[in-house]
Nucleic acid binder design. Sequence first.
DNA 1: CTGTTAGCGCCTTCAG
DNA 2: CTGAAGGCGCTAACAG
Lengths: 305, 305
Amino acid sequence: MAGIDDVARAAGVSTATVSRALSGRGPVSTATRDRVLAAADRLGYVVSAAASSLASGRARAVGVVVPFLDRWFFSTVLAGISDALVREGYDITLYSVSADPAERRRVFDDHLRRRRIDAVITIAIEMDATESALLRTLGVPVVSIGGPNPLLTTLTVDDRAVGRLATEHLIALGHRRVTHIGADTTTDAASSVPALRRRGFVETMDAIGAAPVFEPADFTIEGGSAAATRTLSGDAPPIIGVDGHELGRWFGLTTVDQFARGQGERAAEAALAELDGADPAPGLGTLPFELVDRGSTGPVDAARR
Amino acid sequence: MAGIDDVARAAGVSTATVSRALSGRGPVSTATRDRVLAAADRLGYVVSAAASSLASGRARAVGVVVPFLDRWFFSTVLAGISDALVREGYDITLYSVSADPAERRRVFDDHLRRRRIDAVITIAIEMDATESALLRTLGVPVVSIGGPNPLLTTLTVDDRAVGRLATEHLIALGHRRVTHIGADTTTDAASSVPALRRRGFVETMDAIGAAPVFEPADFTIEGGSAAATRTLSGDAPPIIGVDGHELGRWFGLTTVDQFARGQGERAAEAALAELDGADPAPGLGTLPFELVDRGSTGPVDAARR
DNA sequence: CTGTTAGCGCCTTCAG
DNA sequence: CTGAAGGCGCTAACAG
C-alpha cells in the first residue's frame, strides 16, 4: 500500500506538502495541490488512520454507545447518526453496553478510553455521576440522547409532555377510564423515560379527576401485548402508543412519534459542531415529538361509557 | 491521561516491559507483571489505539459493512457480531453503504482502507469482482455473510433449499395453488438471495406439476402486505414467511428461521479465528435454517381445494 | 527475564 | 508557499 512518501515522490514535493494538500490544512498552491491529488489518486493512497491520528490527535471517528443494537429505536437512531457522519468522512465505532456491569465497566474504562474517537454519542444510556465524569475526562465532545444530564450536552424528549399529550388525546375523545401500560417504575429512577411518561399520564388524569390505572409491562412485544390482553376487554378499545415504530403505521396505531432517525442526525450534527469548535451546550437541547392519529383511537361511544 | 512511561516509571521498569506485561506478548516474570498491572490500574492507563496500532500493525477493531442499519435482519446480525467481538476486546467500526454508488465507492476506496481494522465482515453486500478484489487487497481476513463468493470466506444460507423447504411444507399440507411473494428477480442477479429462494419455489412446484404463481414485492412491510392483499382472497389462506423476524412469533407466522443473531456470532468467530492464524476458508461455510411451524399454515380444507 | 533502540506513517512547527 | 526535522505513544527486535 502506497504511503505518503510514495505520493510525495510521485508529485515531486515533500511529505509535508502532501499532508497539507490532502488534509486541506495549511497553504498549498492550487497547482501543487492538483499535482498531489492526482498522484495520490493514481497511487490509490489513503491516509493511515493510526499514523494520522497519532500525529494529529484527530481520529476521524465518532463513538456511539447503545444499550441494544437489535431494537428498532436504537438501530434507527444509529442509522440517522451514520447518515450524518459518513457525509463528513467520519467512521463510526460502536459500543454496545449490555446490562452486565462488568462489560459496562470495560466499555467505559477501557474501550472508550483508547483515544480512537473524536466524539461520543450515547443513546438512552443512563449514567451515574462517575460515568458521566468519565466521559468528560475523555476530552472530547459528548452528546447524549436521553434524560437530561447536567454534565453533558444532552438532547432530550420531554417525556412528561409526551405522556400528557397521549393522555390528553384520549381525554379529548371523551375517554375517562384510561390504563397506562408501561414499565413498572418502582425500580426506575424518577427521571427515567418510562417514569416521566407515566408521570405525564398521572398528571393529566389527576387534572380531570379521573383515576389512573396501571398495567406493568416491559419494553418488549410480548410484555406489551400480554399487558394489553390483561387489560383490554374483547371490544377493541382505543389504543395509543409512543414511539413512531415503523410497524405502528402498518397497524394503524395512533402514536406519539419522536422521529428516531432525526434524533440520530441531530446528535451527530451537534457532535460535529462541537468538533468544529462550537461551544459545548451542557444541559439540554429539546427534541420534537408529535401526535400522529392513525385511527386506533376514536371518540368514546355511548355503549362503552 | 497517563502514558506508557508513566506506568513504566511507577512500576520501576522500562516501557518495553510495560508493553509486554499489558499485552501478554513476550516473557515477563509474574512479579513484575503484577507490579505493572497494579501501576497501570492505579494510573488508569489505557493503551492508545493509534500508537499501538501504528507500532504493532494490529488495530483491535473489526469493520462491519451493512446495507442497512434500521432493518431487523441487519441490526440483529450486528448484535450477534458485537457480542462475539466485545468478548475478545475488539471494537466494531461500522460502515453503512447505501445504494448511492458514490457513497459506496467512498466506503470501499477510502474508509475501509484507512488501516483501522484487523478484519472485515460484510452482511448481505453483493460485490462485483472489483470490490471483492479490493477487500482482498486490504490484507486482512474478510468474512462475508451472503451469496457465495469464491474470492472471500463466505457464510451462506442455501436460499434455494430454503425456497424448497417452505414450498414443500405447503405441498405436504395438501396445497397446490401456491403464490410466491418476493422480489421481482428480473432485475436481480441469478445468484441473489431472492432469486435463489424463488428458484427453490419454482423447482418444487415443477416437481409436482403445479403452476407457480408470482406476486412481486420488495423487502418492505408495505410491499409485502400490498402483495399479500392483492393475492389472497378474504378467507385467510395459509402463509409462510422466511426469516425468523421477532414479530413472526407474535403473529403466529410459520417461517423458515435462519437465526440472524447466530449468523453474526459465527461470522465474528470466523474472523477472529483467521486473525488467530487459522487458514482462511475461501468459498462457503454453510448456515443453518429451520422450518418453524407456528400455525399460520395448515392442511388444505375441502372447501378451498 | 529485562532494557535499549529503532522505527511504525504521518503531522506540524520552524525556517527559508 | 514549501521543505526539513522532530516527535505523536507504543512495539519489536536485539542485546545483555
